[in-house]
Design a protein around this nucleic acid. Sequence first.
DNA 1: ACGTGCTTGTGAAAGCACGCACAAAGTGGG
DNA 2: CCCACTTTGTGCGTGCTTTCACAAGCACGT
Lengths: 214, 214
Amino acid sequence: MARLPIYLRALQALQDRGILTVSSEHLASAAGVNSAKLRKDLSHLGSYGTRGVGYEVEYLVYQISRELGLTQDWAVAIVGIGNLGRALANYGGFGTRGFRIAALLDADPAMVGQSVASLDVRHIDNLEAVVRSEGVSIGVITTPAAAAQGVATRFVEAGVASILNFAPVVLNVPDGVDVRKVDLSIELQILAFHAQRRADGDGRNAERAGLELT
Amino acid sequence: MARLPIYLRALQALQDRGILTVSSEHLASAAGVNSAKLRKDLSHLGSYGTRGVGYEVEYLVYQISRELGLTQDWAVAIVGIGNLGRALANYGGFGTRGFRIAALLDADPAMVGQSVASLDVRHIDNLEAVVRSEGVSIGVITTPAAAAQGVATRFVEAGVASILNFAPVVLNVPDGVDVRKVDLSIELQILAFHAQRRADGDGRNAERAGLELT
DNA sequence: ACGTGCTTGTGAAAGCACGCACAAAGTGGG
DNA sequence: CCCACTTTGTGCGTGCTTTCACAAGCACGT
């Protein structure tokens, strides 16, 4: 389920506050979901709750981490060391969650050799070698749109079956390869869409109110 | 619908290649969706296609832009000028799509006054004033998790009803306020989850095959 | 030992999204 | 003018997701 990471984060926040057990109602509101949904999600992992009490925070953290595969560590390669690539490389929240930035790659010779987040940027031609030597299993693409498909294909051919794509293109990959897309501009457009619907609705209501007054 | 921005991007790519009309089948494969779904989505905006021919690219771009509210321009304020905030400020893809970065805000006095993407970083205390003077209607939060809720509340009180949140917390906002969340670490966790399921499945199959051979 | 009060886990209903498959509608050639 | 071909728009069945509502189960005070 795509919601497990959210639960995990909420649980870790509770853990930091020293809370030992939590009810589904509580955890659900912290995660922003319905409590029945949360209970059903958790019941798919097994019965880890105690009726009348709730869930033991620490045990649940462990179970969800295991289910998500965070007990092992995943080597991540980032291709495209622009502003966004650098921001990701410097983002501290990965290491603590089982993810290790194993390599930074770029096509620009001026970028190669620079040190970013205590890693040397290497040339994209080394992609296959890096994937093999570092055991990379997750690829992150932060290149311009035009370069993204090529990088994705090389990742796939090198054996990387999980790709996180920040470039604004739909990637074409074989079955069995998992691509997730994050598009900042699309998020803004969706917000604008809802904002306009709100405004349109207000406008229409105002008009109608006006008409009714005449 | 959340898919309209994807269609729009695909259409603009077609437009750049000088293509004048497109069939639902074609556009759907470019956008990575089923053609029936695409036709149903488009039919909700009205009947803009011609049977036997397809859709006129330019007209469809205009209609979707209008539906998304991209014909007006939206002022965006970014709070939290760390690596990610800077990356967003420098990202060029916004201006061309009706979004204008109107202000950059940060709580750190050392950051205030610096120039990022030809904008002066201003202190967070000016949030309400900036929202009013620039007509900000979309707020982007790229602060650390601990500061995010406070910023969100100030945005809401200043009249901003659309928030894009990159901080790893669930924001608490009143009804009528639209929050979208982008969490890089969660995306990686979902990829890891699927990767592990693939691996587990392989393992189980291998085991079963092994057992069947004994 | 027993009842009271909470909380989980889940059956059942409702809602929704997806995709097939086809009728309606337009185009172009003969 | 008609026919064959293409493509849109949509009715309908199917399966998944979400939500409600409640029985089963556990802890605690008496």
